[in-house]
């Protein structure tokens, strides 16, 4: 009987997600290898950008898909991560083990403060509160005169790991980012298997049931909020390395909006979607942008076409928590 039980509780979709996720990661590695062999440095840096954006998108995707929380301020933890890398590198601390943990912890701590305030509300009020906090950090970053103020500042040195310059070239940075994507995929799958994951997913569907079961709904949502912020900060550290530059523009609300666009475009909650949508937006910018400066017109038309033509299943599913504010 036990075998049957186990079969019943295991979610087959999880296994499939893991497989398709690794297929996509494999494809990214293959593309990177091809770019290297073909000697296309531009393509290499593009793949790096796609991988880093995918990490950021996945963290938001987790928040929207697993916790049903639409944050319009996800640029904030990303920017915080980037500034942590900038400041630590300037002080000579380039080791990724320190940079990544510092970025994760700082962003998580900040989310621990802003989260409970935003979580008093739902729907559009939650969206606006997360935006408000992100705007505050945007202006804080702009006022950091000794770190370049509005203009930002170049990264003193790319990050290292245990003394090795593992991000020295764009190819190495891309490879590291893709590997990190794989780690996040594994962690996410593991989380879905835990008690936490089971409760969190149930919560997006039926908050009342979960509360009646003895779970404090807002505690779980806060954990998700904090974890998502930490992972976003990790992508910020990589972003700083990729661009060799950090500026308040990373915290601009446009970035948060773009990230939501990527997440929704790719289909919330899945790695392949996040990678594909990141690739779509970045490639649009690069290739269409190469021919015309009005590439956003093309992106806008594509987005509207996709939204209008797509069926309603996604909407019905994710509309659950977004039915207006709660007092």
């Amino acid at each position: 009987m036990n075998d049957m039980n186990r079969a019943a509780v295991v979610n087959p979709a999880l296994k499939q997600d893991l497989l398709t996720g690794f297929a996509v990661i494999g494809a990214l590695f293959a593309a990177l290898a091809t770019a290297q062999i073909a000697g296309a440095p531009y393509l290499t840096s593009l793949i790096g950008r796609i991988a880093i954006t995918s990490i950021a998108a996945l963290s938001l995707s987790f928040l929207i898909g697993q916790a049903g929380l639409v944050s319009f301020g996800h640029a904030a933890p990303i920017g915080i991560g980037a500034y942590v890398a900038l400041m630590l590198a300037a002080g000579g601390t380039t080791d990724l083990s320190i940079q990544l943990s510092a970025a994760f912890i700082l962003a998580a701590l900040i989310a621990l403060i802003t989260g409970p305030i935003a979580l008093k509300t739902r729907g559009v009020t939650f969206i606006m509160l997360t935006l408000a906090f992100a705007q505050m950090f945007f202006y804080v970053a702009s006022s950091l005169v000794s770190w370049g103020g509005d203009d930002g500042m170049a990264l003193a040195q790319r990050s290292t790991l245990f003394g090795y310059q593992i991000l020295r070239t764009d190819a190495m940075l891309a490879a590291f980012s893709i590997a990190l994507l794989a780690v996040i995929l594994l962690a996410n799958t593991w989380m879905a298997h835990t008690r936490f994951g089971l409760v969190l997913k149930a919560m997006t569907e039926n908050e009342r049931r979960v509360a009646a079961n003895g779970f404090e709904v807002n505690h779980f949502l806060l954990y998700a909020f904090v974890i998502a912020a930490g992972v976003a900060a990790v992508s910020g550290v990589l972003l700083a390395n990729q661009a060799n530059y950090v500026s308040p523009a990373y915290l601009n609300w446009h970035r948060s909006g773009e990230l939501i666009v990527i997440v929704v475009l790719g289909g919330v909650g899945r790695l392949p979607g996040a990678v594909l949508a990141s690739a779509l937006v970045i490639l649009f910018e690069e290739f269409l942008g190469h021919y015309t400066e009005y590439w956003k017109l093309g992106l806008g038309l594509t987005i509207v076409a996709i939204v209008l033509l797509r069926g309603r299943d996604l909407g019905a599913f994710f509309g659950v928590r977004n039915q207006g504010a709660r007092p």
């Binding site: 729907g123 666009v261 987005i303």
Partner: peptide
Amino acid sequence: VFRVLTSRSHLEQVLGTFGVILIVTDAMK
């Protein structure tokens, strides 16, 4: 555009109207 979006989830509304911003901004440009 909007007539179709009103029956969709808030997320899709954000996505679709964001697309409209991009279109109109570039059209003005």
